[in-house]
């Protein structure tokens, strides 16, 4: 495994890395509508937003990246099919996790610099 992340974590100066903050809290303040969630049936399913309103999730990612976070978390806290089943989305688990990872990854690439990658 080649991992820039582990290289940086274990580099001799042992940098302190900053993880981002609350996804839920910062989605909540955007006052999203049922429509944003893809209909009333999905209201509250934050994981589904990467499909129905990816900008909302991107806003949170961007907010934390702007704030200086070194690591951001994908919007997949409830991303197992058991939890998604509560919204009838169990069969979407693979797709939603992959989409969430792609979205987050894309944004980190925008904000990556040689410094914050430890290069």
């Amino acid at each position: 495994m080649n991992s820039l992340f582990l290289d940086r974590l274990h580099s001799p100066n042992r940098p302190v890395l900053v993880l981002d903050g609350a996804m839920g809290t910062n989605l909540q303040v955007q006052n999203l509508t049922a429509e944003d969630f893809g209909g009333e049936k999905y209201e509250g399913c934050n994981e589904y937003l990467v499909h129905t309103k990816p900008e909302a999730v991107a806003t949170v990612h961007r907010g934390f990246l702007e704030a200086g976070a070194d690591i951001i978390e994908t919007d997949t806290f409830g991303g197992t099919s058991i939890v998604l089943a509560e919204y009838d989305l169990a069969d979407q688990a693979y797709y939603l996790n992959k989409a969430a990872a792609q979205l987050a990854k894309k944004l980190t690439e925008e904000y990556s610099t040689p410094e914050n990658l430890g290069l």
């Binding site: 997949t76 197992t80 688990a93 969430a100």
Partner: peptide
Amino acid sequence: EQAEGLYDG
């Protein structure tokens, strides 16, 4: 299943 989606993403 979740990990596979995340890995592929």
